[in-house]
Design a protein around this nucleic acid. Structure first.
Length: 426
RNA sequence: GGGGGGUUACCGAAGCGGUCAAACGGGACAGACUGUAAAUCUGUUGGCUCAGCCUUCGCAGGUUCGAAUCCUGCACCCCCCA
């Protein structure tokens, strides 16, 4: 594992570096300090941040010290890279809350208690807030030729567009560049990693290091995690896939990876898991021979869910998977059901309704699965109605307390995957 | 200002006095198939106390045994002429 550079190369994680010939040896010696930046626009990271985060983890495992920097200051400004329009600014309180949430998630992937290789989480606002505007202009801004800045892709593309670019966002590059210089002075950090869209910002930091510190710093970018169709990984129709279980349940997280397209699976395994080369190649082979077995996707989902949500989260996701795909539901406890069906709408009804016999038609309407009794009747007649995952085709069915799946809950399903929970109270 | 055309269920679009809860296409939903993929095939698609009843065809009235269909007024949209 000490030869991290060739591992990264094999995985396809190196898009560009500022020193192709130098870095392999330099990294193989261990003990370097490496940093990557994270966006604090929400109180949780999403799947898009997983790639750089895993990179830091790889570096740490290879004997280096990772620094994750959250842009408390830069988050207030907004990075124009890859953004087509000016970003909304965040309030200070919002940022602090976001950073706190992100910190919790990083602790799952990075070891913050590993002696001199301990990961660090720093907030660039801590040093930026003391910097006066004039001091910044004199010490930092002086080193930035505007013609060079104008040459950066992130700036060029925005200047050409109707959305334009504010002076604030134009200055973003200086802040990120200064981060690098600061981290070098403070922690002897010499390598910055980031997505390929960060190249301009990374090289800006390196230039600044040369001018301000007369030091040679290094940069490395990784490809962006995109699907074969060119869209971003980690987005679904219903929104982003988050690392926080409050925002994306472990089950939904598991399912996202399980449903990755065959063409994307190999890339995901390489980019995001720590499986060794032989195992990944074996999965590649299995995938092209028997794609229907979904071995790659299963492994991918397991590895990542365990990493983010722990063994416990993985177990829940797998139980949920079984249930969502056919297993009959019986003899469960409320808590388990509530966890499994966390993403499913639920409604409450008085227990009396059930004990005196609740027509199945009414149950489907109450649960919101059918928009009218006629609709419910049709669904049942067509064989699309399930109680606790058991198909019920008799329109006249009346449900009673015997039908409860747990102490107080009933699981209704319409069609293949539309679930609703009925909870009986009182 | 004058002339003509339109307004139908989720969307598009037939229907032009009874056989209209309203053709057809799309979408959506369900079933089969399948790899939790794609495609395909089948069924359903106003409500209800469901072999029966009730409410829908821009809105309000009227004619008629009977109207989405005919008449009158109103609203909105489109086109042509000024």
């Amino acid at each position: 594992m000490s030869d991290i550079f060739s591992d990264l190369q094999w995985r396809g994680l190196i898009h560009q570096t500022t020193a192709d010939d130098f870095l392999p040896k330099w990294l193989s010696e261990g003990g370097r300090t490496v940093y990557a930046g994270f966006d604090p626009t929400a109180d949780s990271l999403h799947v898009g941040s997983l790639l750089p985060l895993m990179l830091l983890r790889r570096f740490q495992k290879a004997g280096h010290r990772p620094i994750a920097i959250v842009g408390g200051a830069t988050g207030m400004i907004g990075d124009p890279s890859g953004k087509s329009s000016e970003r909304n600014l965040l309030s200070t309180e919002q940022l602090e809350a976001n950073i706190a949430g992100i910190q919790v998630q990083m602790q799952k992937l990075l070891d913050f208690d590993a002696g001199d290789q301990s990961a660090l989480l720093v907030n660039n606002n801590d040093w930026m807030k003391e910097f006066s505007y004039t001091a910044f202009l004199r010490d930092v801004g002086k080193n930035f030729p505007v013609n060079v800045m104008l040459g950066k892709d992130s700036v060029k593309s925005r200047l050409g567009s109707d959305a334009g670019l504010s002076y604030t966002e134009f200055s973003y590059m200086l802040l990120q560049a200064y981060d690098f210089v600061h981290l070098n002075k403070q922690y002897d950090c010499e390598l910055q990693i980031g997505g390929s869209d960060q190249w301009g910002n990374v090289t800006a930091g390196i230039d600044l290091g040369r001018r301000m510190l007369s030091k040679q710093l290094y940069g490395m970018t990784c490809p962006l995690l995109t699907k074969t169709d060119g869209t971003k990984m980690g987005k679904t129709e219903s929104g982003a896939i988050w690392l926080s279980s409050d925002r994306t349940s472990p089950y939904a997280f598991y399912q996202y990876w399980y449903n990755v397209a065959d063409e994307d699976a190999g890339k995901c395994l390489r980019f995001l898991t720590e499986l060794d080369h032989a195992e990944i190649e074996a999965l590649d082979a299995a995938r092209s021979e028997a794609p229907q077995k979904r071995e790659s996707q299963t492994k991918l989902a397991e590895e990542l869910t365990r990493l983010i949500h722990g063994d416990d989260g993985l177990k829940k996701a797998q139980l949920a998977k079984e249930i969502f795909f056919g297993a009959e539901i019986a003899n469960l406890v409320d808590q388990d059901l509530a966890d499994i069906f966390a993403d499913v709408p639920s409604s409450e009804l008085p227990m009396a309704r059930l004990s005196e016999g609740l027509p199945m038609i009414d149950a489907f309407v109450e649960a919101g699965l059918s928009k009218s009794k006629g609709d419910a009747r049709r669904t049942i007649q067509q064989g699309g109605a399930y109680v606790n995952n058991a198909r019920r085709e008799d329109v006249a069915t009346t449900l009673g307390t015997d039908d409860l799946a747990s102490e107080s809950m009933l699981v209704l399903r319409s069609g293949k995957k539309k679930y609703a929970l009925l909870r009986f109270v009182g």
